[in-house]
Write a protein that binds this DNA or RNA. Structure first.
Length: 465
RNA sequence: GGUCCCAUCGUCUAGUGGUUAGGACGCUGGCCUCUCACGCCGGAAACAGGGGUUCGACUCCCCUUGGGACUACCA
Protein backbone atom coordinates (compact mmCIF):
# COMPACT_ATOMS: atom_id res chain seq x y z
CA UNK A 1 0.00 0.00 0.00
CA UNK A 2 1.27 3.44 -0.89
CA UNK A 3 1.86 6.03 1.77
CA UNK A 4 -0.91 8.50 2.48
CA UNK A 5 0.08 12.06 1.70
CA UNK A 6 -2.28 14.87 2.67
CA UNK A 7 -1.76 18.58 2.46
CA UNK A 8 -3.06 21.87 3.70
CA UNK A 9 -2.89 24.65 1.13
CA UNK A 10 -3.98 28.02 2.48
CA UNK A 11 -3.69 31.21 0.52
CA UNK A 12 -1.91 33.94 2.46
CA UNK A 13 -4.48 36.64 1.90
CA UNK A 14 -5.40 36.79 5.57
CA UNK A 15 -5.10 35.08 8.91
CA UNK A 16 -5.82 31.39 9.41
CA UNK A 17 -9.57 31.13 9.55
CA UNK A 18 -11.18 28.83 12.07
CA UNK A 19 -12.68 26.81 9.23
CA UNK A 20 -9.29 26.52 7.58
CA UNK A 21 -7.86 25.45 10.91
CA UNK A 22 -10.31 22.59 11.11
CA UNK A 23 -9.61 21.51 7.54
CA UNK A 24 -5.92 21.56 8.38
CA UNK A 25 -6.63 19.56 11.53
CA UNK A 26 -8.56 16.91 9.62
CA UNK A 27 -5.81 16.67 7.03
CA UNK A 28 -3.14 16.47 9.69
CA UNK A 29 -5.04 13.89 11.72
CA UNK A 30 -5.63 11.70 8.72
CA UNK A 31 -1.94 11.77 7.86
CA UNK A 32 -0.99 10.96 11.43
CA UNK A 33 -3.66 8.29 11.71
CA UNK A 34 -2.39 6.51 8.64
CA UNK A 35 1.22 7.12 9.46
CA UNK A 36 1.49 9.17 6.32
CA UNK A 37 2.86 12.60 5.52
CA UNK A 38 1.35 16.01 5.97
CA UNK A 39 2.48 18.68 3.54
CA UNK A 40 2.08 22.43 3.87
CA UNK A 41 1.80 24.54 0.77
CA UNK A 42 1.22 28.26 0.52
CA UNK A 43 -0.95 29.21 -2.43
CA UNK A 44 0.28 32.68 -3.17
CA UNK A 45 -0.35 33.03 -6.87
CA UNK A 46 -2.56 36.02 -6.23
CA UNK A 47 0.26 38.53 -6.05
CA UNK A 48 -2.13 41.39 -5.30
CA UNK A 49 -3.61 39.98 -2.16
CA UNK A 50 -0.93 37.69 -0.77
CA UNK A 51 1.26 39.03 1.99
CA UNK A 52 4.24 37.72 3.88
CA UNK A 53 2.61 38.83 7.08
CA UNK A 54 -0.35 36.57 6.42
CA UNK A 55 2.00 33.71 5.67
CA UNK A 56 3.82 34.02 8.96
CA UNK A 57 0.53 34.39 10.80
CA UNK A 58 -0.70 31.17 9.27
CA UNK A 59 2.49 29.32 10.15
CA UNK A 60 2.28 30.66 13.69
CA UNK A 61 -1.31 29.50 14.00
CA UNK A 62 -0.44 26.04 12.76
CA UNK A 63 2.34 25.78 15.28
CA UNK A 64 0.12 26.99 18.09
CA UNK A 65 -2.42 24.30 17.26
CA UNK A 66 0.34 21.72 17.08
CA UNK A 67 -0.19 20.90 13.41
CA UNK A 68 3.34 20.16 12.40
CA UNK A 69 4.12 19.44 8.79
CA UNK A 70 6.52 16.93 7.30
CA UNK A 71 7.28 18.75 4.06
CA UNK A 72 7.19 22.38 3.05
CA UNK A 73 6.07 25.00 3.34
CA UNK A 74 6.15 25.10 -0.43
CA UNK A 75 5.38 28.41 -2.09
CA UNK A 76 3.55 28.43 -5.37
CA UNK A 77 5.16 31.72 -6.29
CA UNK A 78 8.45 29.84 -6.46
CA UNK A 79 7.11 27.18 -8.76
CA UNK A 80 5.96 29.33 -11.66
CA UNK A 81 8.30 27.64 -14.13
CA UNK A 82 6.73 24.31 -13.35
CA UNK A 83 3.22 25.58 -13.98
CA UNK A 84 4.24 27.30 -17.20
CA UNK A 85 5.86 24.17 -18.53
CA UNK A 86 2.61 22.28 -17.98
CA UNK A 87 0.65 25.05 -19.64
CA UNK A 88 2.94 24.70 -22.61
CA UNK A 89 2.40 20.97 -22.62
CA UNK A 90 -1.34 21.49 -22.85
CA UNK A 91 -0.89 24.11 -25.56
CA UNK A 92 1.31 21.77 -27.56
CA UNK A 93 -1.19 18.98 -27.22
CA UNK A 94 -3.98 21.23 -28.44
CA UNK A 95 -5.80 20.90 -25.12
CA UNK A 96 -5.46 24.57 -24.32
CA UNK A 97 -5.48 27.72 -26.37
CA UNK A 98 -4.68 31.42 -26.25
CA UNK A 99 -7.63 33.74 -25.82
CA UNK A 100 -7.74 37.47 -26.45
CA UNK A 101 -11.15 38.25 -25.01
CA UNK A 102 -10.91 41.19 -22.63
CA UNK A 103 -12.37 41.14 -19.14
CA UNK A 104 -14.70 43.96 -20.20
CA UNK A 105 -16.14 42.00 -23.12
CA UNK A 106 -16.52 38.95 -20.93
CA UNK A 107 -18.29 40.97 -18.28
CA UNK A 108 -20.76 42.32 -20.84
CA UNK A 109 -21.46 38.87 -22.21
CA UNK A 110 -21.97 37.63 -18.67
CA UNK A 111 -24.52 40.30 -17.96
CA UNK A 112 -26.40 39.61 -21.15
CA UNK A 113 -26.43 35.90 -20.46
CA UNK A 114 -27.68 36.50 -16.94
CA UNK A 115 -30.41 38.87 -18.07
CA UNK A 116 -31.53 36.27 -20.60
CA UNK A 117 -31.42 33.70 -17.81
CA UNK A 118 -28.70 31.71 -19.52
CA UNK A 119 -25.74 30.20 -17.80
CA UNK A 120 -22.94 32.76 -17.94
CA UNK A 121 -20.18 30.60 -19.28
CA UNK A 122 -17.39 31.40 -21.70
CA UNK A 123 -18.70 31.09 -25.22
CA UNK A 124 -15.56 29.72 -26.79
CA UNK A 125 -14.95 32.72 -29.02
CA UNK A 126 -11.20 32.14 -29.27
CA UNK A 127 -11.20 28.40 -29.04
CA UNK A 128 -10.44 27.74 -32.69
CA UNK A 129 -8.81 30.99 -33.68
CA UNK A 130 -5.33 29.63 -33.28
CA UNK A 131 -4.00 32.70 -31.47
CA UNK A 132 -0.45 32.72 -30.26
CA UNK A 133 0.81 34.46 -27.13
CA UNK A 134 0.44 38.19 -26.94
CA UNK A 135 -0.13 41.04 -24.53
CA UNK A 136 -3.39 40.83 -22.67
CA UNK A 137 -3.94 37.25 -23.71
CA UNK A 138 -4.71 34.35 -21.43
CA UNK A 139 -4.56 30.59 -21.86
CA UNK A 140 -7.77 28.64 -21.56
CA UNK A 141 -8.28 24.94 -21.19
CA UNK A 142 -10.41 23.35 -23.90
CA UNK A 143 -12.97 21.50 -21.85
CA UNK A 144 -14.99 18.72 -23.52
CA UNK A 145 -18.60 19.72 -24.23
CA UNK A 146 -20.04 16.30 -23.75
CA UNK A 147 -19.83 13.52 -21.24
CA UNK A 148 -19.92 13.44 -17.49
CA UNK A 149 -17.17 14.02 -14.99
CA UNK A 150 -17.64 12.13 -11.76
CA UNK A 151 -15.71 11.19 -8.65
CA UNK A 152 -16.30 9.37 -5.40
CA UNK A 153 -15.89 11.78 -2.56
CA UNK A 154 -14.74 10.16 0.70
CA UNK A 155 -17.26 12.25 2.59
CA UNK A 156 -20.06 13.03 0.21
CA UNK A 157 -20.12 9.95 -1.94
CA UNK A 158 -20.45 10.01 -5.70
CA UNK A 159 -20.66 13.43 -7.31
CA UNK A 160 -21.29 13.77 -11.04
CA UNK A 161 -21.49 16.82 -13.25
CA UNK A 162 -22.36 17.13 -16.92
CA UNK A 163 -19.44 18.54 -18.80
CA UNK A 164 -21.66 21.06 -20.55
CA UNK A 165 -21.95 22.80 -17.18
CA UNK A 166 -18.27 23.56 -17.34
CA UNK A 167 -16.57 26.16 -19.48
CA UNK A 168 -13.10 26.80 -20.80
CA UNK A 169 -11.47 28.03 -17.66
CA UNK A 170 -8.44 30.27 -17.69
CA UNK A 171 -5.30 28.49 -16.58
CA UNK A 172 -2.79 31.24 -17.28
CA UNK A 173 -3.63 34.86 -16.65
CA UNK A 174 -2.61 37.74 -18.90
CA UNK A 175 0.03 38.71 -16.32
CA UNK A 176 1.65 35.32 -16.79
CA UNK A 177 0.46 33.91 -13.46
CA UNK A 178 -1.29 30.55 -13.43
CA UNK A 179 -4.70 30.30 -11.77
CA UNK A 180 -5.82 28.36 -8.74
CA UNK A 181 -7.58 25.47 -10.42
CA UNK A 182 -4.49 24.80 -12.46
CA UNK A 183 -1.86 25.17 -9.76
CA UNK A 184 -3.63 22.94 -7.26
CA UNK A 185 -3.72 20.16 -9.77
CA UNK A 186 -0.10 20.53 -10.78
CA UNK A 187 1.01 20.73 -7.17
CA UNK A 188 -1.15 17.95 -5.82
CA UNK A 189 -0.05 15.73 -8.68
CA UNK A 190 3.64 16.54 -8.55
CA UNK A 191 3.74 16.42 -4.77
CA UNK A 192 2.09 13.03 -4.92
CA UNK A 193 -0.82 13.98 -2.75
CA UNK A 194 -2.97 10.90 -2.33
CA UNK A 195 -5.85 12.46 -0.40
CA UNK A 196 -7.08 15.95 -1.10
CA UNK A 197 -8.92 17.02 2.05
CA UNK A 198 -10.35 20.49 1.70
CA UNK A 199 -13.38 22.67 2.26
CA UNK A 200 -16.76 21.92 0.88
CA UNK A 201 -16.62 25.13 -1.14
CA UNK A 202 -14.33 23.37 -3.59
CA UNK A 203 -16.71 20.61 -4.65
CA UNK A 204 -17.78 22.51 -7.71
CA UNK A 205 -14.17 23.06 -8.73
CA UNK A 206 -13.32 19.40 -8.53
CA UNK A 207 -14.73 18.34 -11.92
CA UNK A 208 -12.72 21.08 -13.66
CA UNK A 209 -9.65 19.92 -11.83
CA UNK A 210 -10.28 16.33 -12.75
CA UNK A 211 -10.36 17.38 -16.38
CA UNK A 212 -6.93 18.94 -15.92
CA UNK A 213 -5.64 15.78 -14.25
CA UNK A 214 -6.90 13.78 -17.19
CA UNK A 215 -5.60 16.19 -19.81
CA UNK A 216 -2.15 15.85 -18.31
CA UNK A 217 -2.38 12.13 -17.72
CA UNK A 218 -1.99 12.43 -13.95
CA UNK A 219 -3.35 9.84 -11.59
CA UNK A 220 -6.35 11.08 -9.61
CA UNK A 221 -6.12 11.46 -5.84
CA UNK A 222 -8.97 10.70 -3.44
CA UNK A 223 -11.09 13.73 -2.66
CA UNK A 224 -12.67 14.51 0.69
CA UNK A 225 -14.75 17.67 0.95
CA UNK A 226 -15.38 18.63 4.53
CA UNK A 227 -18.54 20.61 5.30
CA UNK A 228 -18.37 24.27 6.15
CA UNK A 229 -18.52 25.81 9.56
CA UNK A 230 -21.48 28.15 9.80
CA UNK A 231 -22.27 31.10 12.01
CA UNK A 232 -25.32 31.10 14.30
CA UNK A 233 -27.41 32.40 11.39
CA UNK A 234 -26.31 29.40 9.32
CA UNK A 235 -24.37 31.37 6.79
CA UNK A 236 -20.69 30.81 6.17
CA UNK A 237 -18.79 31.72 9.31
CA UNK A 238 -17.32 35.16 8.85
CA UNK A 239 -16.00 38.11 10.76
CA UNK A 240 -19.43 39.51 11.45
CA UNK A 241 -20.09 36.42 13.58
CA UNK A 242 -17.21 37.31 15.87
CA UNK A 243 -13.66 36.07 15.99
CA UNK A 244 -12.73 33.78 13.13
CA UNK A 245 -8.96 33.98 13.36
CA UNK A 246 -7.27 31.09 15.11
CA UNK A 247 -4.73 33.42 16.69
CA UNK A 248 -7.42 35.63 18.14
CA UNK A 249 -8.57 32.62 20.15
CA UNK A 250 -5.12 32.42 21.59
CA UNK A 251 -5.33 36.08 22.55
CA UNK A 252 -8.73 35.56 24.10
CA UNK A 253 -7.24 33.02 26.45
CA UNK A 254 -8.11 29.73 24.83
CA UNK A 255 -5.89 26.68 25.14
CA UNK A 256 -4.97 25.07 21.82
CA UNK A 257 -6.11 21.64 23.04
CA UNK A 258 -9.55 23.09 23.72
CA UNK A 259 -9.83 24.59 20.26
CA UNK A 260 -8.58 21.40 18.66
CA UNK A 261 -11.00 19.29 20.66
CA UNK A 262 -13.84 21.64 19.79
CA UNK A 263 -13.07 21.84 16.09
CA UNK A 264 -12.62 18.13 15.63
CA UNK A 265 -16.11 17.51 16.96
CA UNK A 266 -17.64 19.66 14.25
CA UNK A 267 -18.88 17.20 11.65
CA UNK A 268 -16.97 14.36 13.25
CA UNK A 269 -17.65 12.18 16.24
CA UNK A 270 -16.62 8.96 17.87
CA UNK A 271 -19.69 7.53 19.56
CA UNK A 272 -20.63 9.60 22.58
CA UNK A 273 -17.13 10.74 23.40
CA UNK A 274 -16.63 14.48 23.82
CA UNK A 275 -13.16 14.78 25.28
CA UNK A 276 -10.24 13.51 23.28
CA UNK A 277 -6.54 13.49 23.91
CA UNK A 278 -4.33 14.02 20.89
CA UNK A 279 -3.36 10.36 21.00
CA UNK A 280 -6.98 9.33 20.92
CA UNK A 281 -7.70 11.63 18.01
CA UNK A 282 -4.86 10.18 16.00
CA UNK A 283 -6.07 6.72 16.84
CA UNK A 284 -9.76 7.30 16.17
CA UNK A 285 -9.91 9.89 13.42
CA UNK A 286 -10.71 8.81 9.92
CA UNK A 287 -11.94 11.10 7.13
CA UNK A 288 -14.42 8.46 6.10
CA UNK A 289 -16.26 9.13 9.35
CA UNK A 290 -16.65 12.84 8.74
CA UNK A 291 -20.31 13.77 8.44
CA UNK A 292 -21.68 15.43 5.36
CA UNK A 293 -23.65 18.32 6.81
CA UNK A 294 -22.43 21.72 7.86
CA UNK A 295 -21.99 22.60 11.53
CA UNK A 296 -22.80 25.77 13.41
CA UNK A 297 -20.00 27.24 15.47
CA UNK A 298 -21.04 27.42 19.10
CA UNK A 299 -18.90 29.50 21.43
CA UNK A 300 -20.63 28.19 24.56
CA UNK A 301 -19.40 24.70 24.00
CA UNK A 302 -15.90 25.89 23.16
CA UNK A 303 -15.92 27.81 26.42
CA UNK A 304 -16.95 24.71 28.32
CA UNK A 305 -14.11 22.73 26.76
CA UNK A 306 -11.68 25.51 27.50
CA UNK A 307 -12.71 25.57 31.14
CA UNK A 308 -12.30 21.81 31.22
CA UNK A 309 -8.78 22.01 29.79
CA UNK A 310 -7.74 24.84 32.10
CA UNK A 311 -8.94 22.78 35.04
CA UNK A 312 -7.17 19.73 33.71
CA UNK A 313 -3.91 21.61 33.27
CA UNK A 314 -4.24 22.87 36.83
CA UNK A 315 -4.97 19.39 38.16
CA UNK A 316 -1.99 18.01 36.32
CA UNK A 317 0.15 20.68 37.91
CA UNK A 318 1.10 22.35 34.64
CA UNK A 319 1.33 25.67 36.45
CA UNK A 320 4.44 26.96 34.71
CA UNK A 321 2.76 26.42 31.37
CA UNK A 322 -0.33 28.30 32.45
CA UNK A 323 1.55 31.15 34.05
CA UNK A 324 3.63 31.64 30.93
CA UNK A 325 0.40 32.09 29.00
CA UNK A 326 -1.01 34.30 31.73
CA UNK A 327 1.83 36.80 31.97
CA UNK A 328 1.10 38.66 28.76
CA UNK A 329 -2.54 38.90 29.74
CA UNK A 330 -1.69 40.27 33.17
CA UNK A 331 0.49 42.91 31.60
CA UNK A 332 -2.10 43.74 29.02
CA UNK A 333 -4.52 44.47 31.83
CA UNK A 334 -1.98 46.92 33.20
CA UNK A 335 -0.98 44.94 36.26
CA UNK A 336 2.49 44.20 37.48
CA UNK A 337 3.22 40.55 36.93
CA UNK A 338 3.75 38.88 40.32
CA UNK A 339 6.39 36.27 41.10
CA UNK A 340 6.12 32.65 40.07
CA UNK A 341 4.86 31.36 43.43
CA UNK A 342 2.15 33.97 43.58
CA UNK A 343 0.96 33.32 40.03
CA UNK A 344 0.81 29.62 40.79
CA UNK A 345 -1.33 30.27 43.84
CA UNK A 346 -3.62 32.52 41.87
CA UNK A 347 -4.07 29.85 39.22
CA UNK A 348 -4.83 27.33 41.92
CA UNK A 349 -7.38 29.63 43.54
CA UNK A 350 -9.12 30.87 40.43
CA UNK A 351 -8.46 28.19 37.83
CA UNK A 352 -11.66 26.16 38.17
CA UNK A 353 -13.80 29.25 37.93
CA UNK A 354 -12.36 30.55 34.68
CA UNK A 355 -13.58 29.73 31.21
CA UNK A 356 -10.58 31.43 29.63
CA UNK A 357 -7.13 32.49 30.72
CA UNK A 358 -8.31 36.06 30.49
CA UNK A 359 -11.01 35.14 33.02
CA UNK A 360 -8.35 34.09 35.48
CA UNK A 361 -6.93 37.59 35.47
CA UNK A 362 -10.31 39.27 35.57
CA UNK A 363 -11.83 37.08 38.25
CA UNK A 364 -8.62 37.35 40.23
CA UNK A 365 -8.11 41.07 39.59
CA UNK A 366 -7.98 41.78 43.36
CA UNK A 367 -4.76 39.79 43.59
CA UNK A 368 -3.08 42.32 41.34
CA UNK A 369 -4.61 45.51 42.64
CA UNK A 370 -3.02 47.57 45.37
CA UNK A 371 -6.26 48.96 46.76
CA UNK A 372 -9.73 47.56 46.57
CA UNK A 373 -12.59 49.80 45.60
CA UNK A 374 -15.77 48.74 47.33
CA UNK A 375 -18.86 49.47 45.25
CA UNK A 376 -21.15 51.73 47.24
CA UNK A 377 -24.16 49.46 47.24
CA UNK A 378 -22.12 46.53 48.51
CA UNK A 379 -20.56 48.66 51.22
CA UNK A 380 -23.94 49.76 52.46
CA UNK A 381 -25.38 46.33 52.41
CA UNK A 382 -22.57 44.38 54.02
CA UNK A 383 -20.57 46.73 56.22
CA UNK A 384 -23.28 47.42 58.73
CA UNK A 385 -22.74 48.63 62.28
CA UNK A 386 -23.56 45.14 63.58
CA UNK A 387 -20.82 43.62 61.50
CA UNK A 388 -18.11 46.09 62.47
CA UNK A 389 -17.24 44.57 65.85
CA UNK A 390 -16.96 41.12 64.33
CA UNK A 391 -14.60 42.40 61.67
CA UNK A 392 -12.56 44.19 64.29
CA UNK A 393 -12.33 40.99 66.28
CA UNK A 394 -11.27 39.06 63.22
CA UNK A 395 -8.56 41.55 62.44
CA UNK A 396 -7.39 41.08 65.97
CA UNK A 397 -7.35 37.29 65.85
CA UNK A 398 -5.85 37.20 62.38
CA UNK A 399 -3.03 39.37 63.62
CA UNK A 400 -1.90 36.47 65.76
CA UNK A 401 -2.19 33.85 63.02
CA UNK A 402 0.39 32.38 60.72
CA UNK A 403 -0.97 32.77 57.18
CA UNK A 404 0.99 29.91 55.78
CA UNK A 405 -1.08 27.62 57.99
CA UNK A 406 -4.70 27.48 56.94
CA UNK A 407 -5.71 25.89 60.24
CA UNK A 408 -4.54 28.95 62.14
CA UNK A 409 -6.62 31.25 59.99
CA UNK A 410 -9.63 29.05 60.47
CA UNK A 411 -9.03 29.07 64.24
CA UNK A 412 -8.91 32.83 64.20
CA UNK A 413 -12.33 32.87 62.61
CA UNK A 414 -13.67 30.19 64.91
CA UNK A 415 -12.74 32.16 67.99
CA UNK A 416 -14.74 35.10 66.81
CA UNK A 417 -17.65 32.90 65.79
CA UNK A 418 -17.77 31.17 69.13
CA UNK A 419 -17.33 34.32 71.20
CA UNK A 420 -20.22 35.97 69.42
CA UNK A 421 -22.34 32.89 68.78
CA UNK A 422 -22.61 33.60 65.10
CA UNK A 423 -22.27 31.48 62.00
CA UNK A 424 -19.48 31.73 59.50
CA UNK A 425 -21.98 32.79 56.89
CA UNK A 426 -22.60 36.05 58.76
CA UNK A 427 -19.11 37.36 58.27
CA UNK A 428 -17.91 35.44 55.24
CA UNK A 429 -19.50 37.73 52.70
CA UNK A 430 -18.36 40.98 54.33
CA UNK A 431 -14.83 39.61 54.52
CA UNK A 432 -14.98 38.48 50.91
CA UNK A 433 -16.08 41.89 49.78
CA UNK A 434 -13.44 43.62 51.85
CA UNK A 435 -10.75 41.49 50.25
CA UNK A 436 -12.01 41.52 46.67
CA UNK A 437 -14.62 44.23 46.22
CA UNK A 438 -16.88 41.54 44.81
CA UNK A 439 -19.54 39.09 45.96
CA UNK A 440 -18.04 36.20 44.05
CA UNK A 441 -14.57 34.90 44.63
CA UNK A 442 -12.47 31.87 45.50
CA UNK A 443 -12.68 30.49 49.02
CA UNK A 444 -11.90 32.93 51.83
CA UNK A 445 -9.00 30.98 53.29
CA UNK A 446 -7.43 30.21 49.94
CA UNK A 447 -7.53 33.89 49.11
CA UNK A 448 -6.12 34.95 52.44
CA UNK A 449 -3.20 32.61 52.10
CA UNK A 450 -2.44 33.83 48.60
CA UNK A 451 -2.87 37.50 49.44
CA UNK A 452 -0.78 37.28 52.59
CA UNK A 453 -1.26 38.69 56.04
CA UNK A 454 -0.39 42.31 55.31
CA UNK A 455 -2.83 42.77 52.48
CA UNK A 456 -5.62 40.92 54.20
CA UNK A 457 -5.37 42.95 57.37
CA UNK A 458 -5.00 46.26 55.64
CA UNK A 459 -7.99 45.54 53.42
CA UNK A 460 -10.10 44.57 56.39
CA UNK A 461 -9.01 47.69 58.24
CA UNK A 462 -9.76 49.87 55.24
CA UNK A 463 -13.31 48.69 55.35
CA UNK A 464 -13.79 49.54 59.00
CA UNK A 465 -13.02 53.20 58.46
C1' G B 1 -31.31 32.00 -12.54
C1' G B 2 -28.14 27.41 -13.28
C1' U B 3 -25.16 23.45 -11.06
C1' C B 4 -23.76 20.89 -6.79
C1' C B 5 -24.25 19.81 -1.59
C1' C B 6 -27.04 19.38 3.00
C1' A B 7 -31.51 18.31 6.57
C1' U B 8 -32.30 14.02 14.42
C1' C B 9 -33.47 18.46 20.71
C1' G B 10 -31.75 25.93 20.31
C1' U B 11 -26.42 24.01 19.10
C1' C B 12 -22.67 19.75 18.32
C1' U B 13 -23.93 14.79 17.52
C1' A B 14 -25.14 8.88 18.30
C1' G B 15 -28.33 6.00 15.38
C1' U B 16 -27.37 2.54 10.11
C1' G B 17 -35.29 -1.22 9.02
C1' G B 18 -37.99 -3.20 14.85
C1' U B 19 -34.68 1.80 20.50
C1' U B 20 -38.88 4.33 26.23
C1' A B 21 -34.63 8.00 19.73
C1' G B 22 -28.79 7.99 23.44
C1' G B 23 -24.77 11.56 24.84
C1' A B 24 -22.68 16.64 25.16
C1' C B 25 -23.07 22.22 25.39
C1' G B 26 -26.66 25.63 26.84
C1' C B 27 -31.23 26.11 29.82
C1' U B 28 -33.49 24.32 34.28
C1' G B 29 -34.76 21.72 39.53
C1' G B 30 -31.86 19.78 43.56
C1' C B 31 -27.45 18.21 46.44
C1' C B 32 -22.66 20.04 48.09
C1' U B 33 -21.39 24.91 50.26
C1' C B 34 -18.34 30.89 53.12
C1' U B 35 -20.15 33.49 47.65
C1' C B 36 -19.12 31.93 42.77
C1' A B 37 -17.31 28.02 40.18
C1' C B 38 -16.13 22.83 40.18
C1' G B 39 -18.40 18.11 41.19
C1' C B 40 -22.76 14.91 41.72
C1' C B 41 -28.12 13.63 40.92
C1' G B 42 -32.73 14.88 38.15
C1' G B 43 -35.86 17.69 34.21
C1' A B 44 -37.69 20.11 29.73
C1' A B 45 -36.12 19.82 24.68
C1' A B 46 -35.49 16.66 18.15
C1' C B 47 -36.34 12.74 13.65
C1' A B 48 -38.83 19.74 8.35
C1' G B 49 -43.46 18.24 5.31
C1' G B 50 -45.74 14.85 1.78
C1' G B 51 -45.67 10.55 -1.02
C1' G B 52 -43.85 5.74 -1.87
C1' U B 53 -40.82 0.70 -0.78
C1' U B 54 -41.69 -2.72 3.38
C1' C B 55 -45.13 -6.80 7.94
C1' G B 56 -42.53 -2.46 9.94
C1' A B 57 -39.38 3.39 8.70
C1' C B 58 -35.30 8.53 11.93
C1' U B 59 -32.94 4.90 8.91
C1' C B 60 -34.00 3.18 1.66
C1' C B 61 -36.30 6.00 -2.94
C1' C B 62 -38.97 10.38 -4.98
C1' C B 63 -41.10 15.23 -4.51
C1' U B 64 -41.80 19.76 -1.73
C1' U B 65 -39.84 23.13 1.64
C1' G B 66 -35.76 25.19 3.97
C1' G B 67 -30.51 26.09 4.25
C1' G B 68 -25.57 26.35 2.17
C1' A B 69 -21.68 26.50 -1.60
C1' C B 70 -20.11 27.53 -6.40
C1' U B 71 -21.14 30.21 -10.79
C1' A B 72 -13.77 35.57 -11.40
C1' C B 73 -7.71 36.89 -15.33
C1' C B 74 -9.65 34.98 -5.84
C1' A B 75 -8.14 30.81 -3.51
Amino acid sequence: MTEVRTRFAPSPTGYLHIGGARTALFSWLYARHTNGKFILRIEDTDAQRSTEEATSQILESMEWLGLNWDEGPFYQSKRLDIYRSYVQKLLDAGKAYWCECTPDDLEKKREIALSEKRKPKYDGTCRHKGHGPGPGRVVRLAVPFTGVTAFDDMIKGRIAVNNDELDDLIILRSDGMPTYNFTVVIDDATMNITHVIRGDDHVNNTPRQIIIYEALGFELPQFAHVPMILGPDKTKLSKRHGATSAMVYKEMGYLPEALVNYLVRLSWSHGDQEIFSLQELIEFFDVHDVGSSAAVFNTEKLLWLNQYYIKKAREEGRLEELSALLKPIIQERGYVSPGANLINSIITDVGDRAKTLVDIVDIGDFYFKENIEIPEDLGKKFFTPEIAPYLAAIIDELGKADFSDKAQMENAFNHVLEDNHIKFKIIAQPVRIALTGKTMSPGIFEMMETLGKDKVISRLKAVLK
